[in-house]
């Protein structure tokens, strides 16, 4: 078993009003060192692929087809072995 972790974020060129609102809120709390906030999604996918390479390849396809929208989003993925617990 493998555990895939997918991080989906808005592209740098796309404004993130949610991140901007969180940034302002952090400033209100006194965290003046905060320069920028981007809000994204974290998705866990458990796969019973044969090898890590296969899991990575399949997960990459899933991201391109459904998990992320390439018009506005980019993604990064990690695959690790998982004992299913």
């Amino acid at each position: 078993m493998f555990l895939g972790k997918v991080f989906v974020t808005l592209k740098k060129s796309v404004l993130d009003p949610q991140g901007d609102t969180v940034r302002k809120s952090l400033h209100t709390l006194g965290y003046s060192m905060v320069e920028d906030v981007r809000v994204g999604k974290y998705i866990e996918v458990r796969l019973n692929s044969q090898t890590r390479e296969e899991a990575e390849r399949e997960l990459d396809q899933m991201c391109a087809r459904l998990l992320a929208n390439p018009v506005i989003e980019e993604y990064r993925l990690e695959v690790e072995e998982d004992d299913g617990q």
Partner: peptide
């Protein structure tokens, strides 16, 4: 229709949230 690729572009959350 945007997600299907029948029309170009994508939707983002309203800028006002």
């Amino acid at each position: 229709l945007l997600e299907s690729g029948l029309l170009p572009g994508a939707m983002l959350r309203n800028d006002s949230l």
